[in-house]
Nucleic acid binder design. Structure first.
Lengths: 347, 347
DNA sequence: CCCCCGAAGTCATACGTATTACCCCTTGAA
DNA sequence: TTCAAGGGGTAATACGTATGACTTCGGGGG
C-alpha cells in the first residue's frame, strides 16, 4: 500500500496550535462549554483544511463499540431483502447506528473458494456491535453457522424469519402458518379440492414452515388433498416442477407456490400446457414482492411485512444491546386476493 | 452496555502460559517455524477453550487496513444490484477481502431524518479500505456525495455505471449507448417508425445516457421519430406514463422502456387499452433482470453483465489499493431478442 | 575451550483516539 | 490581600494487536 496516510487528530492539533486532547474535545462535541468558542473555531477550521476524518478503527478500539450492526441474508439477489434492509436502516439511523449487509459465508455464489469462517469473512463480522441474522434453517443454527456469535461475552444476535428459538435468542418471525392457512381456506372456499404445492427446495425455516403449514391445513379439511413437487427458486426450475404436477393424471386445480417467483414459473407452465390462469388453474404466491403485480393476471399472494420485520428486528437488537431482553415477535401476513385465483373449472 | 468483555490475546497467553506475542505469532500463522509445534498446539487449544477471537478494531488500528471494501448502491430494493454484489464479493474473497453494502446516505427510505454525512453513516464508510460507488449521476459526484472520499490521502474509489470520469477515478461502465443503438436498430429493422420512450425520471448517469443514446440513434435515422414521457421506476407509475404515450393521436408502434420493470408497466398499459404485445405494440426493456423472462411474452431487452461489473469493479479497486492505476473499462451490453417485439401492425 | 549461530521466546512499542486527572490563570468574594 | 471557584487548556493513559529488537539457551565447529 503506497497510500498516503490520512491526517490524524495530532496533525490537526499541530495545525491549530493546540493539543490533541483539545481536538478530540472539540470534534467530539460532547462536553459543551469545555472549550472556548474561539479555540473550537480554529480547531474546526484546521480540521477542515486538512480534510481530517477520525480513524474509525482507533475510535472503535477506544470506545469498544462501532455503532454498526450487520444484517446477514442468504442472498442479495432475492428481491425480498431490500425492504428488510430499508426498515432496519431506518430504525438504526434514528439511534445513531449504521447498517452493513453481508450474505452468509456459505453463499456459494459469492464465496466460491469455500473460505473458512475464520478467514476474510471475519472482518465484517467482527467490526460490529450486533447481528441481524435472517432466514436461517433454524434459530439454533446461529451457533454453528457463526462461531462465537452466541453464548457469553459474544456478539448479540437477533434472528429474523428463522423460527421461534425458545429462549436462545430474540426472534422476529412472520406468521407463515397463518398465511398458508389463509391461502388454503381461500382456495377451498372457491371449491378447489386437489391442490398442488410447488415447494422451494431451500433449507430455510420459512420454507419448511410453509410446507408443514400447508400439509397441516389440508389434513384438517376432509376431502382435500395435496400433491407436492419441489424446485429451486428460479422461474425455469419452477416451471419444470409445476409442469410435472400439471401433467399428473389427477391434475390439481390450484397450485400453491412457495414464493412469488415460483408462481411466475407456474404461470409459464400453465401457458405452455394451454391452461388459462385463473379459469383453468388457480395460482397463489407468497411474499408479495414487486413481481406479484407485474404478472398478468396479478398474483393472489400473502403479503409479508418485510420492511416492518427489518424495523422490529433492529428495535429488538438495539434493546438487546442496551441490556434489555426483547420479547419474541410474530408479524402476521395478509392474504391479498388478486386475479390469479377463481373457482375450479366445472367437471 | 453491560456486555461481558471478550477474552483478549493476553488472556489466551495467560491461559497457555506464554506471552501475548507468542499468541499473536501462533494465531497470525505467518512466520512459519517461529514457534515450536508443541507451544503452538497449547496456544491454539487455549484460544479454543476461551473462545478467543481477535478484536478487529485493534487489528485494523495496528495494521492500518481492514481488508474490507464498501459497495454503495442507490437502493437494495432494485433487483439489479444483487448480482453486482455477488461478482464483487467473489473477487474480493479470492484476495482475502470482505464486502459490505450500504445505500447512499441520501436514500430517503433508509435515512428519513436526513442524518448528516458526518453522523452515524460515517461508521461503515470509514472502517473500510476502499469504495465501489455504483450508479451515481456523474462520476464527479463522488466528491460532493462523500466528503473526503477523493483527493490525496483519502479513500480509494472506483465508480460503477456512473459514466467516464476523465482521469478523476477509475471507472467501470456499461456500453449503454451501444445497447440503446442496438434496440433502435432492431425496432427500425422490424419496420417501426414512431417510437415512444418511457424514461426513468431518476438522476443517475445510466438513465441520462439511455435517453441521450436513444435520441442520438433516432436522429441518425431519417423518417424515424421518438416521443418521450417519464416515470418513476415502479410498475404503476410506468403504466401511467406508457398510457399517456399510447393515447396520443400519433400513437407509437413501439415502446422503448428504460428498464425491465418499466416495461412491465408498459405491458399493463397495453393490456388495459386492448393492445396485444407484440402484434399491436412492441416493447423493449433494459438490464435483463429476472422479471424479463417472467413476463409474458418474454421481454426483448439488453442484458447488462451486472455480476461481471461487480467483479471488474472489485478487480480495479484492488489494483488501486495495490498502487496500480486501473484503466477505465466498458462492458458491452447484449441485445436479447425475445417475444415482445415484432413488426408494427399493417396500416 | 571459546565463539558463534539458530531456535524459541519475550519485551517493548506504535497504531489514533477519547477521557480522566491535573494544572494554570483569571476573577470575584471575603 | 487571600483564597475559592471555576474556565480553559494539557499531559497521561488505556484500548488490543502485530512485529522488530532483544534475550536466552543449547549445540557444533574451529
Amino acid at each position: 500500500m503506497s497510500t498516503i496516510s490520512r491526517p490524524t487528530s495530532r496533525d490537526v492539533a499541530h495545525e491549530a496550535g493546540v493539543s490533541q486532547s483539545t481536538v478530540s474535545l472539540v470534534l467530539g462535541d460532547k462536553w459543551p462549554g469545555r472549550v472556548s468558542p474561539a479555540t473550537a473555531r480554529s480547531v474546526r477550521s484546521a480540521a477542515e483544511r486538512l480534510g481530517y476524518r477520525p480513524n474509525t478503527a482507533a475510535r472503535n478500539l477506544r470506545l469498544g463499540t462501532t455503532r454498526t450492526v450487520l444484517l446477514m441474508v442468504p442472498t442479495l439477489s432475492a428481491p425480498f431483502f431490500g425492504p428488510v434492509y430499508t426498515g432496519a436502516a431506518r430504525v438504526a439511523a434514528r439511534h445513531g447506528f449504521g447498517v452493513v449487509v453481508s450474505t452468509w459465508p456459505d453463499d456459494p455464489a459469492a464465496h466460491p473458494s469455500g473460505s473458512p469462517t475464520g478467514g476474510p469473512f471475519a472482518a465484517p463480522h467482527e467490526a460490529i456491535d450486533g447481528v441481524l441474522a435472517s432466514s436461517l434453517a433454524t434459530s439454533s443454527m446461529i451457533t454453528s453457522a457463526t462461531p462465537g456469535m452466541s453464548g457469553a461475552g459474544t456478539t448479540p444476535v437477533v434472528t429474523l424469519d428463522s423460527g421461534p428459538a425458545g429462549d436462545l435468542v430474540p426472534t422476529v418471525d412472520f406468521g407463515v402458518a397463518d398465511g398458508m392457512r389463509a391461502i388454503t381456506a381461500h382456495l377451498v372456499g372457491l371449491g378447489h379440492r386437489r391442490v398442488g404445492h410447488v415447494a422451494a427446495a431451500v433449507d430455510q425455516w420459512t420454507f419448511h414452515a410453509r410446507a408443514d403449514a400447508l400439509t397441516a391445513a389440508v389434513a384438517a379439511l376432509p376431502g382435500v388433498s395435496v400433491v407436492r413437487d419441489s424446485c429451486a427458486i428460479d422461474v425455469a426450475s419452477a416451471k419444470d416442477a409445476a409442469t410435472r404436477l400439471l401433467e399428473r393424471s389427477d391434475r390439481p386445480t390450484a397450485l400453491v407456490c412457495d414464493d412469488d417467483q415460483i408462481a411466475a414459473g407456474a404461470y409459464k407452465a400453465a401457458r405452455a400446457l394451454g391452461l388459462d390462469v385463473p379459469s383453468d388453474l388457480s395460482v397463489t404466491g407468497f411474499d408479495d414482492v414487486l413481481l406479484a403485480t407485474a404478472l398478468e393476471p396479478e398474483l393472489t399472494t400473502v403479503r409479508l411485512p418485510a420492511e416492518e420485520m427489518g424495523a422490529q428486528g433492529m428495535t429488538a437488537l438495539l434493546d438487546l444491546l442496551a441490556g434489555r431482553r426483547p420479547e419474541p415477535r410474530v408479524l402476521p401476513g395478509e392474504l391479498i386476493v388478486r386475479g390469479s385465483t377463481a373457482p375450479p373449472p366445472a367437471l
